[in-house]
Design a binder for these strands. Structure first.
Length: 542
RNA sequence: GCGCCCGUAGCUCAAUCGGAUAGAGCAUCAGCCUUCUAAGCUGAGGGUUAGUGGUUCGAGUCCACUCGGGCGUACCA
C-alpha cells in the first residue's frame, strides 16, 4: 500500500518541489474512519510554504496522479491530514501474494547480503539458567529470527568465561560437597553456590571415583566436571526453548591468541593507557567518559573491560555489518566504556547495537521471589518450561518492550488460562486448520477468481491487517523490538475471530465460500509465519 | 551525589518520526452456541498519561525541575 503512495508523491514533486524537503511518510490511522493510510505532509509544509495546511493539502491532492482502481477516495481531515482510502479490489489482491509466497510471505530482501551476529545469554557456567536468563534468551533468539526475515545472514553467539573468581568458588563449592559426601564435617560458606545441583555433581564424582579425590585441587577435576555438567544442562535448557547457538566463544581464546596483549600494546602506542598504583588505566576521560578505569589490576589480571573490547574487535574483524549485544540492566554501565575503547582503536562502533532489557520480577501469587544463583532461591527456566511449555515462555518474554520492567506472575502463567494471549493466536490458527479439514468433505476449493465478493466490513478489515504484515516484520526487526510483532499478531487474530463470527464459509454460496476460504487460508499462513518468527508453534488443533 | 531505564484504567501492558476521540487483555456487569472449535464474539462502566512549567499547528512521546520505583556507579563479571 505504502509503495504505491510513495511513488505517487515522488511524481508530484515536479509540481510541488518543496515535497523534497520534508520526510514523506504514511501512517496507518488508529480509526478506520480516517482511511487506510494517512499523510501529514501538508502540516509539515506549512512553515516552508507559509500557507494554511488545508490549502496545501488540497494542492497536494490535485497534483497526485492517483489511479482510480487503487484509491477510491481522498479527504482532508482534522488539522490537515490527507487520508487515502484504497479500493477493495486493491486490498483483496494481497491474498494472491500470500498464497503465492506461503511460508516466505513477509520476508524482505532489504538487507540481503548483510551479515549480523547476535550475542545473547552468555551466562557463565556456574549454575542452571534461571527465569531471569529466559528473557535474554528468548528476546535474543527472536531478534535473530527477525533479522533473518529481513535478509540478514545471522550467527547466534554465546560468550563465556570459565576462569576467574566465580569459577574458583564453583570448584570450591563442589569440593566441599564432595568432602561432605565422604562423611566429613564441613561448614559451607554462605557465599558459595548453595544449589542442589552442586551436591549432585559431587555425588557423581563420588560414584565414579570413591574417595580418591580427597586431596585433589578444587580447581582441577571439581571445577572442570562442574563446568561440563552445567554447560551440558544449559545447552539442553536452551534447546528446549528452540535456541541453538552456532558459536560458543570462550574468553580464554582471547588470551591464547594474544589478542589481549595486542590490545594492550595498541592502547600504549596510542598513548591511551598509563600506569598508576601498580595497575594499568585506560584514559576513558579523554574518550568521552566520566573517568579513567583500570584495565589491568595490580595483580596482573585484566578487568572485564579489556577482554570485552578485544572480543568486540575480534567480532568486527570477522566482517559483520551488525553486532547485537543483549544483556540485562545490571550491565548498563559497562558498554559505554567498551564502545569508547573500540572507537579509540579505529573500529566503527556504530555497527554495534546494545539491547538492554530491564529485569524480570518474579511473582508467585502476591509474593515477590528474589533471584540469586548463589543463594539458590531461583526458579529455573526448565522448571518454568515444564510448567507452561515453550510456546507460553517464548510468547510471554517477547510480548513486552525490553525497556519495561516485567512482572512474571508464576501463578498466572501456570494457570494456562485466557490470561495467556498465546492461546488466542494459536486458537485462530487451529480454527482455520479445522475449516480446511471440513471443507474437503464439502469439496470446496480455495479460489481467488472472485476476490470482488469480499465486501463485508470484517473481510476488508482483515485484508488490511494482512497487508501490514511485511512492514510490521521490517519495523520490528529494524527497531529490534519483538513485542511489536506480538501486538500485530494479536490484532490479526482478533480480526480473524471477528471475521470468523460474521462471515461463515460452510452453507454460503459457493463462489463466496471459496473466496472466503482463500482469505482464511491466507490468514492462517500469516499467523503461522508470525508465530514462527517468535518461535511459537502453530497447532492444527487445540 | 552521578549515570541508564521506568511511572499510562483496579491489575498486566500497547500507542509508528511529535499526529486526529490515549487502546487491548484480565477483573466487574449485561448479552450471543440446533450452523466451520465459546480457548470465541458483541456491548457497558473504568483515565487530569505521577506532578509543575516550557517548546509548537499539535505532547503520553521532546526540554527543565519535582516526586516515586528498578539497575548500576569495583583493581567483580
Amino acid at each position: 500500500m505504502k509503495e504505491y503512495l510513495y511513488s505517487a508523491f515522488k511524481e508530484a514533486e515536479s509540481k510541488i518541489p518543496q515535497l523534497k524537503e520534508i520526510p514523506i511518510s504514511f501512517d496507518i490511522p488508529k480509526s478506520i474512519e480516517h482511511g487506510d493510510l494517512s499523510s501529514n505532509a501538508a502540516m509539515l509544509l506549512t512553515k516552508i510554504l507559509k500557507k494554511n495546511p488545508k490549502a496545501i493539502a488540497q494542492e497536494i491532492i490535485v497534483s497526485l496522479n492517483l489511479d482510480r482502481s487503487v484509491i477510491v477516495k481522498t479527504e482532508i481531515a482534522g488539522p490537515g491530514f490527507i487520508n487515502f482510502f484504497f479500493t477493495s479490489e486493491f486490498t483483496s489482491k494481497i491474498i494472491k501474494e500470500i498464497l503465492d509466497k506461503k511460508e516466505n510471505f513477509g520476508k524482505s530482501d532489504k538487507y540481503l547480503g548483510k551479515r549480523a551476529n547476535v550475542e545473547f545469554v552468555s551466562a557463565n557456567p556456574t549454575g542452571p539458567l534461571t527465569v531471569g536468563h529466559g528473557r535474554n534468551a528468548v528476546v535474543g533468539d527472536t531478534v535473530a529470527n527477525l533479522l533473518e526475515w529481513i535478509g540478514y545472514e545471522v550467527e547466534r553467539e554465546y560468550y563465556f568465561n570459565n576462569a576467574g573468581r566465580q569459577m574458583r568458588v564453583l570448584g570450591d563449592s563442589v569440593k566441599l560437597r564432595y568432602l561432605e559426601t565422604l562423611g566429613e564435617k564441613i561448614t559451607f560458606p554462605e557465599d558459595y553456590y548453595q544449589g542442589d545441583y552442586i551436591k549432585e555433581i559431587a555425588m557423581q564424582l563420588f560414584i565414579k571415583h570413591g574417595d580418591e579425590l580427597r586431596n585433589e585441587d578444587p580447581e582441577s577435576i571439581f571445577k572442570d566436571t562442574a563446568e561440563q555438567e552445567i554447560f551440558f544442562d544449559i545447552k539442553k535448557s536452551l534447546k528446549n526453548l528452540g535456541i541453538n547457538h552456532k558459536i560458543f566463544f570462550n574468553e580464554n581464546t582471547l588470551y591464547e591468541e594474544g589478542k589481549i596483549e595486542e590490545l594492550l600494546k595498541i592502547f600504549k602506542e596510542k598513548n591511551l593507557s598509563y600506569e598508576k598504583d601498580g595497575a594499568i588505566w585506560l584514559k576513558l576521560s579523554e574518550l568521552g567518559q566520566t573517568e579513567d578505569k583500570v584495565i589491568v589490576k595490580n595483580t596482573g589480571e585484566p578487568t572485564y573491560r579489556l577482554p570485552d573490547i578485544a572480543y568486540h574487535a575480534v567480532k568486527l574483524d570477522r566482517g559483520y555489518d551488525l553486532l547485537i549485544d543483549l544483556f540485562g540492566s545490571d550491565h548498563n554501565a559497562t558498554y559505554p566504556d567498551v564502545m569508547a575503547g573500540l572507537k579509540a582503536i579505529g573500529y566503527d562502533s556504530s555497527k554495534v547495537k546494545v539491547l538492554i532489557h530491564q529485569f524480570v520480577t518474579i511473582m508467585d501469587g502476591g509474593e515477590v521471589v528474589k533471584m540469586s544463583t548463589r543463594k539458590a532461591n531461583y526458579i529455573t527456566i526448565d522448571e518454568l518450561n515444564e510448567e507452561v511449555g515453550k510456546d507460553v515462555v517464548r510468547y510471554f518474554f517477547n510480548m513486552r518492550n525490553v525497556n519495561s520492567h516485567m512482572i512474571f506472575d508464576l501463578a498466572v502463567a501456570k494457570k494456562q488460562s485466557d490470561e495467556n494471549p498465546v492461546f488466542y493466536l494459536q486458537y485462530a490458527h487451529a480454527r482455520i486448520s479445522s475449516i480446511l479439514r471440513r471443507v474437503q468433505e464439502e469439496q470446496l476449493e480455495v479460489t481467488i477468481n472472485h476476490l470482488d465478493l469480499l465486501t463485508h466490513e470484517d473481510e476488508q478489515a482483515l485484508l488490511k491487517v494482512l497487508h501490514n504484515f511485511k512492514e510490521e516484520v521490517l519495523n520490528s526487526a529494524e527497531n529490534l523490538e519483538s513485542h511489536k510483532l506480538c501486538t500485530y499478531l494479536y490484532d490479526l487474530a482478533s480480526s480473524y475471530h471477528r471475521f470468523n463470527r460474521s462471515c461463515r464459509i460452510l452453507g454460503t454460496e459457493r463462489n463466496l465460500a471459496e473466496t472466503r476460504l482463500a482469505l482464511a487460508y491466507a490468514t492462517m499462513i500469516v499467523i503461522k509465519n508470525g508465530l514462527s518468527i517468535l518461535g511459537v508453534s502453530a497447532p492444527e488443533q487445540m
